[in-house]
Amino acid sequence: MNVDLSAAVAQTALLLLLAPLLSGLIKNWKAKLQNRRGARIWQPYFDLVKYLRKDMVISEHASWIFSVTPGVIFLTALSAGLMVPLVTANAPLGLFGGAIAVVGVLALGRFFMALGGLDPATTFGGMGSSREMTIAALAEPAMMLAIFTVATMAGSTNLGQIVLAGQEPGWKFLDAPHALAFAAMFIVLLAETGRIPVDNPATHLELTMIHEAMVLEYSGRNLAFAEWGAAIKQLVLMALLTNLFFPLGLAPVVTPAALGAGLAFFAAKLLILAGAVVLVEFTNAKLRLFRVPDLLSAAFILATLALVSTFLFR
C-alpha cells in the first residue's frame, strides 16, 4: 500500500465531475416517474456555474464560521472520496484511513454544516442543524455495525482490503451477512443523503426540510460549494455501498483495460443503486420526524443481525 499521486488527481477529477451528474440523474428519473419531463441530467452543472457567477449576500449576524463552512463541506467530502475505492480496488489515499476515517471525515463536514446553519441567527438554520445532528446520531450506530460486519469478514477496516477480500473466488459477497448489512446501509444512505422517507430534497417548507434549512442563508459561490460538497458526499456514500457490497469489476491492477472495465462496472452499479433510491423515493411518503427513529432502529437491528449471522451460520 502506498500513496499514488496521479491516481489521487484522477480520482479527485472523477469525484468532482461525476457527483453533479449523479444528482441530476436521480432528479431526472424521479421526474420521469412522476410523469414530468424533468430537468436535463446535466442541469446541476449549469446550476453550479450559475451559483459561482452570482454575487454573494452574507448575513450581518454571521461570523467567519459561516464563510468557512462551504469550503469545509467541499474539502471533507473530497478527502473522504479519496479514501474510497471507486474504479480501482485500492483507493489512492487508502493508506490514510479506512471506513472509520471516512465516517469521521464526513462527520467533520456535517459538524461545520450544522454550525453554519446556526450562525446567521435564523430559526430555519437552527431547526435544520438540530434535526440533522439528531438523525446523524441515530444513523451512526447502524452504519458502524454494518461496517463492522464487512470489516470483520475481511479482517480489515481498510476499504481496499475489504474490496480485495470480496473479490476472492466464490462470490462471498452474496451471503446473508452482506445482504443484511447492505439493507442496513441502504437505510443509512437514505438518511445521510437526505432522501425521501427521511428528508425531502425538493422542498423549502420549514416543517419538512433538513438539509435545505441549513443552507438556506447561503448564496453565490458559498452555495455552489455547499451543494457540490453535498453531491460529492452522496456519490461517496453510494460508491461505498456499491463497491463494498458488490466489489465486482474493480480494477485490481492499473492497466487501461482494467481501468476501463472498472469504470464501466462502477457506472452500471451506480445506475442500479440510483434506480433503487429513486424507486424508494417514488413509492414512499416522507416520514414524520419522530418516525425516522423507527426506520433507523430497523437499520440498527438489521446490522446487528448481520453481525450475528457472521458467526452463527458456519
Partner: peptide
C-alpha cells in the same frame, strides 16, 4: 451458486419481514 442464491433470497425475506414490523 444456487445454494448462495437461496441463502441470499431467504435473507432478503427476513429483511422484508423486519421492514414489515417497522412500516406503519
Amino acid at each position: 451458486v444456487a445454494s448462495r442464491l437461496i441463502t441470499l433470497l431467504a435473507t432478503l425475506m427476513l429483511v422484508f419481514q423486519l421492514l414489515l414490523v417497522v412500516q406503519q
